[in-house]
Design a protein around this nucleic acid. Structure first.
Lengths: 212, 212
DNA sequence: ACCTGAACACCGTTCAAGT
DNA sequence: ACCTGAACACCGTTCAAGT
């Protein structure tokens, strides 16, 4: 019985039965031990979650393709990370801000600092830029968890909701109900990611001319 | 005993004792009734949270100053909304994605559509842009909840953490420990917000030239 | 028709007692 | 030294029984 085994069993529980099923009782049952013995390897349930999330963050350390510039690398990592979270919604739903200081989180931080300092930003700006990008990526997954737009039933449900609003109070929602219902988290993510990276690029250019 | 009274008591509970204190028992005690009678006005605890969050979103409907362009208005609303959430961290910690279809949420959606369509975007792009901005603002508050950077004790704690890393594995974290420890959620928010709005501006310009 | 008391089926966590 | 069984203090939710 190792910490590793506990984390593995936790991931299995999350992936097969969802976040609500990650209880100390279910975990003990899956590992054939008592609840109390779990506390020998983990201080809290919260610590367990922190370890679990940080472990998942480790996937972001996959190295982007060579020859790409900083923006392409950042976009590549952001998309990879998002896709990993989408594949493990149970983990995504557990995301808080508390896990930023775990080992894998720090590794990701080091990597993104390298990226943005290399692109020409000061350490301070690089940190803020990296942090805002991470917030957007994680938020985009986290806050769209139960709302998959590719589900056609969900789309028509939203279309109906928009269409049935009061046209005087919500003219645009009613008028564009059809197209609005189709806009999903993929669009939100790509538009936001591109806007952020464009904004970062211009920030970098401005920093460069300031320095000259 | 009205739904309004339940929501008021919930907010009071959240603001004074935090999110963990928002239980049906505490709520019943505060309202001098039994837990069971709460279920006469609310289907679920989840529905209660949804109503509570949507009610909080209502503050975003404050009208921005006249004469401002779309970017200034968007920035103004984003900052106002963030500040309101920071004043009510208990509510912020309850944010999921599930509340996007409440009345106040829809009002905010209508408003931001007006803003971005008015700026020159197609309804589809306007929706994606508005959604990504909302995700960033909410995420920036939500994922920084326990980590106030203005707390000097917290700053020195982070500085120590960064400094004590392995300099071979985390050269940048170690080298810039002092300045990195000072970068907080305010910096993250302002940098990200400005980058997003800059990106939106360029997207709008590109749409305009495409149309010509 | 409305509210209540009491229960049900769960939680996370702790700790004396065993081996 | 390690693990266990059993309990403690909580949850959200339901429902027969009362008024």
């Amino acid at each position: 019985m190792t910490l590793e085994a506990i984390l593995d069993a936790s991931m299995a529980l999350l992936d097969t039965r969802g976040a609500a099923a990650l209880t100390m009782r279910n975990l003990a049952e899956a590992l054939d031990c008592t609840q109390a013995s779990l506390y020998r390897h983990v201080r809290n349930r919260e610590e367990l979650v922190t370890l679990l999330v940080d472990r998942t963050l480790g996937v972001a350390s996959s190295v982007p393709p060579d020859g790409a510039d900083w923006a392409e690398k950042a976009a590549w990592s952001a998309r990879l990370f998002r896709e990993h979270l989408l594949r493990h919604p149970g983990v995504a739903s557990l995301l808080r801000g508390t896990e930023r200081l775990g080992p894998n989180s720090l590794a990701g931080r080091e990597y993104s600092l390298e990226l943005f300092i290399g692109a020409g930003l000061s350490p301070r700006l690089a940190a803020a830029v990296a942090s805002s990008l991470a917030t957007f990526v994680i938020g985009s997954v986290h806050f769209n968890l139960g709302l998959d737009a590719s589900d056609s039933e969900e789309i028509s449900h939203r279309r109906l909701l928009y269409r049935s609003r009061d046209a005087a109070a919500f003219p645009l929602l009613v008028q564009h109900a059809d197209v609005l219902a189709e806009v999903g988290s993929d669009d939100e993510f790509e538009v936001g990611l591109n806007a952020l990276l464009t904004g970062f690029r211009i920030l970098i250019e401005r920093e460069d001319t300031t320095r000259d």
